Measured scan of single mutants.
Amino acid sequence: NQASVVANQLIPINTALTLAMMRSEVVTPVGIPAEDIPRLVSMQVNRAVPLGTTLMPDMVKGYA
């Protein structure tokens, strides 16, 4: 099963992502692949992401 990127904390809108904000977890539906975590660092979210939410490509500016 593919691990996805999950929010490790509440991430406010327009926040630049850091490693501490993300974790890898096997979830359904599948979100951004966990191997993309290094690429996500310093990218901004375009909405508030609650703790435990799977990051989807449309939630991260410049990812999709």
Results as ranks from 00 to 15, higher is better:
residue 44 Q to F: 13
residue 48 A to V: 13
residue 43 M to C: 03
residue 10 L to G: 15
residue 3 A to L: 13
residue 52 G to C: 02
residue 51 L to Y: 05
residue 9 Q to S: 13
residue 30 V to G: 10
residue 63 Y to E: 05
residue 19 L to F: 13
residue 6 V to G: 00
residue 37 I to C: 02
residue 1 N to R: 06
residue 35 E to L: 12
residue 23 R to H: 06
residue 1 N to I: 15
residue 36 D to R: 10
residue 59 M to G: 03
residue 21 M to C: 03
residue 61 K to Y: 14
residue 31 G to D: 00
residue 26 V to F: 04
residue 42 S to L: 10
residue 17 L to T: 00
residue 22 M to R: 00
residue 1 N to L: 13
residue 17 L to P: 02
residue 47 R to N: 13
residue 10 L to D: 15
residue 49 V to N: 01
residue 4 S to Y: 04
residue 50 P to I: 07
residue 16 A to V: 14
residue 1 N to Q: 14
residue 16 A to T: 07
residue 57 P to D: 09
residue 63 Y to H: 06
residue 10 L to K: 05
residue 56 M to Q: 15
residue 13 I to S: 08
residue 41 V to W: 04
residue 31 G to Q: 03
residue 15 T to C: 04
residue 23 R to Y: 07
residue 52 G to V: 01
residue 8 N to Y: 08
residue 59 M to A: 12
residue 41 V to S: 06
residue 41 V to E: 05
residue 2 Q to M: 12
residue 17 L to F: 03
residue 16 A to P: 10
residue 56 M to S: 15
residue 43 M to W: 09
residue 4 S to Q: 02
residue 25 E to G: 10
residue 10 L to T: 11
residue 53 T to L: 06
residue 10 L to F: 10
residue 1 N to E: 15
residue 57 P to Q: 08
residue 39 R to L: 15
residue 27 V to E: 03
residue 7 A to T: 12
residue 58 D to Q: 11
residue 37 I to V: 11
residue 27 V to F: 03
residue 11 I to F: 02
residue 59 M to K: 02
residue 16 A to W: 09
residue 35 E to V: 10
residue 18 T to V: 06
residue 53 T to N: 07
residue 1 N to M: 15
residue 38 P to Y: 09
residue 45 V to L: 10
residue 19 L to T: 12
residue 49 V to Y: 02
residue 3 A to P: 15
residue 6 V to K: 05
residue 18 T to A: 05
residue 37 I to P: 00
residue 22 M to W: 02
residue 56 M to H: 07
residue 20 A to H: 13
residue 28 T to R: 06
residue 53 T to I: 14
residue 49 V to D: 01
residue 60 V to W: 02
residue 43 M to F: 10
residue 20 A to N: 06
residue 20 A to Q: 15
residue 60 V to E: 00
residue 60 V to F: 04
residue 6 V to W: 02
residue 14 N to L: 14
residue 34 A to W: 09
residue 12 P to C: 03
residue 64 A to F: 04
residue 38 P to G: 15
residue 44 Q to S: 12
residue 62 G to I: 05
residue 32 I to G: 01
residue 35 E to F: 13
residue 63 Y to M: 09
residue 54 T to D: 00
residue 1 N to A: 11
residue 42 S to M: 09
residue 41 V to R: 09
residue 45 V to I: 09
residue 13 I to P: 10
residue 18 T to W: 03
residue 8 N to T: 15
residue 63 Y to R: 02
residue 7 A to G: 04
residue 39 R to G: 08
residue 30 V to Y: 06
residue 63 Y to D: 04
residue 40 L to W: 02
residue 21 M to A: 05
residue 47 R to A: 13
residue 62 G to L: 08
residue 25 E to F: 10
residue 37 I to M: 13
residue 43 M to G: 04
residue 52 G to D: 09
residue 5 V to A: 14
residue 58 D to S: 13
residue 40 L to K: 01
residue 44 Q to A: 11
residue 49 V to K: 00
residue 54 T to C: 03
residue 56 M to W: 07
residue 43 M to P: 00
residue 18 T to Q: 09
residue 47 R to C: 04
residue 26 V to C: 04
residue 33 P to D: 10
residue 34 A to K: 05
residue 50 P to V: 06
residue 1 N to W: 08
residue 50 P to R: 11
residue 46 N to F: 10
residue 46 N to H: 09
residue 53 T to H: 14
residue 58 D to M: 11
residue 21 M to I: 04
residue 23 R to T: 09
residue 6 V to R: 04
residue 40 L to R: 00
residue 4 S to T: 07
residue 27 V to M: 11
residue 29 P to L: 05
residue 23 R to A: 11
residue 59 M to D: 10
residue 45 V to E: 01
residue 17 L to H: 01
residue 56 M to K: 08
residue 39 R to W: 06
residue 25 E to Q: 09
residue 10 L to I: 14
residue 33 P to W: 12
residue 52 G to S: 12
residue 22 M to I: 10
residue 44 Q to I: 13
residue 38 P to A: 10
residue 20 A to G: 13
residue 29 P to M: 06
residue 24 S to L: 09
residue 51 L to G: 13
residue 49 V to R: 04
residue 63 Y to V: 06
residue 57 P to E: 08
residue 12 P to T: 06
residue 18 T to L: 12
residue 39 R to K: 05
residue 55 L to R: 00
residue 22 M to A: 00
residue 53 T to V: 10
residue 39 R to Y: 10
residue 1 N to D: 07
residue 40 L to Q: 00
residue 36 D to N: 14
residue 10 L to Q: 09
residue 30 V to D: 06
residue 39 R to C: 03
residue 19 L to I: 12
residue 20 A to W: 15
residue 34 A to E: 15
residue 31 G to P: 00
residue 50 P to C: 03
residue 15 T to Q: 13
residue 62 G to M: 07
residue 28 T to C: 02
residue 20 A to K: 14
residue 44 Q to L: 10
residue 64 A to K: 03
residue 14 N to D: 14
residue 32 I to Q: 00
residue 61 K to F: 15
residue 14 N to S: 04
residue 37 I to L: 09
residue 48 A to S: 04
residue 5 V to H: 00
residue 47 R to V: 09
residue 57 P to F: 09
residue 59 M to I: 07
residue 23 R to V: 09
residue 16 A to N: 08
residue 15 T to S: 12
residue 61 K to N: 13
residue 26 V to I: 05
residue 10 L to N: 14
residue 52 G to E: 04
residue 26 V to L: 10
residue 26 V to G: 06
residue 14 N to G: 09
residue 38 P to M: 07
residue 24 S to E: 13
residue 17 L to W: 00
residue 49 V to H: 02
residue 39 R to T: 08
residue 36 D to L: 11
residue 2 Q to A: 14
residue 23 R to Q: 10
residue 50 P to W: 10
residue 51 L to K: 15
residue 11 I to C: 02
residue 7 A to Q: 00
residue 57 P to G: 12
residue 46 N to D: 13
residue 14 N to W: 12
residue 48 A to E: 14
residue 49 V to F: 02
residue 53 T to C: 03
residue 57 P to N: 05
residue 9 Q to R: 15
residue 53 T to A: 12
residue 26 V to K: 11
residue 47 R to Q: 07
residue 29 P to Y: 05
residue 27 V to Y: 02
residue 3 A to Y: 14
residue 46 N to E: 15
residue 21 M to T: 04
residue 30 V to N: 15
residue 37 I to S: 04
residue 20 A to Y: 14
residue 24 S to H: 11
residue 61 K to G: 07
residue 37 I to G: 07
residue 29 P to A: 05
residue 58 D to E: 10
residue 12 P to R: 09
residue 32 I to D: 00
residue 58 D to A: 07
residue 21 M to L: 05
residue 55 L to W: 00
residue 53 T to K: 06
residue 19 L to C: 04
residue 47 R to F: 13
residue 35 E to P: 07
residue 55 L to S: 01
residue 64 A to Y: 09
residue 13 I to V: 11
residue 15 T to K: 05
residue 33 P to Y: 14
residue 5 V to I: 06
residue 57 P to Y: 11
residue 25 E to W: 07
residue 62 G to D: 12
residue 62 G to V: 04
residue 41 V to H: 05
residue 5 V to S: 03
residue 25 E to D: 15
residue 48 A to L: 12
residue 27 V to N: 04
residue 34 A to D: 15
residue 56 M to Y: 09
residue 49 V to T: 05
residue 39 R to V: 06
residue 63 Y to I: 05
residue 1 N to P: 07
residue 31 G to M: 02
residue 64 A to N: 14
residue 21 M to F: 11
residue 2 Q to C: 03
residue 51 L to I: 13
residue 37 I to H: 03
residue 40 L to V: 07
residue 8 N to I: 14
residue 58 D to G: 09
residue 4 S to K: 01
residue 49 V to P: 01
residue 18 T to Y: 07
residue 56 M to C: 03
residue 53 T to M: 12
residue 44 Q to M: 13
